[in-house]
């Protein structure tokens, strides 16, 4: 095979080889782009509200009579980033156990959603929260106080899970 045949010089026509006309064409394109509508979203003013399929910060589902979680530790086991720590304790309710301590280290979490997928109680789901700001490493470890979210605020996600999980 004649490898020279495929060299750049062989493929280009005279005008293309001149560079300048092609550059001018390219500049025409970019010039036209300048007047096209913009895609930028003015973020803090214009907030984006994700759909149910969005995987934001994982939260615990809180029902009227308390959290669903039974502290089985499966989410902690499956979490590839080892972000979750669960400590179980006994409760008088029927389900016998509840998480005495449930902490997610948001600096470790990679929002993979495995915890949600593995949970046998549908007790941990991915929320729509995406703007997480911390000023220290300790603050990034969310305890039950920050994790428990009432079920009424998680309807979109639960509906999504019902359909597609």
């Amino acid at each position: 095979m004649n490898i020279r045949k495929n060299s750049e010089a062989e493929r280009l026509s005279f005008w293309e080889k001149l560079y300048l006309p092609e550059i001018a064409k390219g500049m025409g394109i970019t010039f036209r782009q300048m007047f096209k509508p913009k895609f930028t979203r003015q973020y803090p003013e214009e907030v984006w509200i994700p759909t149910g399929s969005y995987r934001g910060r994982p939260v615990l589902v809180n029902e009227d009579d308390g959290e669903r979680c039974v502290a089985c530790g499966l989410c902690s086991r499956v979490c590839p980033a080892l972000a979750i720590e669960v400590q179980a304790a006994e409760t008088d309710r029927d389900k016998e156990r509840y998480p005495e301590k449930f902490e997610i280290n948001m600096l470790r979490c990679i929002y993979c959603g495995f915890c949600e997928e593995v949970c046998p109680e549908e007790a941990i789901v991915m929320s729509k929260d995406y703007d997480l700001v911390f000023t220290s490493q300790e603050e990034a470890i969310l305890g039950k106080d920050k994790l428990l979210v009432h079920i009424s605020k998680l309807q979109d996600r639960l509906e999504f899970l019902r359909q597609y999980k």
Binding site: T30, Q33, M34, F35, K36, P37, K38, F39, T40
Partner: peptide, 10 residues
């Protein structure tokens, strides 16, 4: 600014 415009940004 110009780069933004060319890339359809603000």
């Amino acid at each position: 600014k110009v780069s933004a415009w060319i890339q359809n940004r603000i």
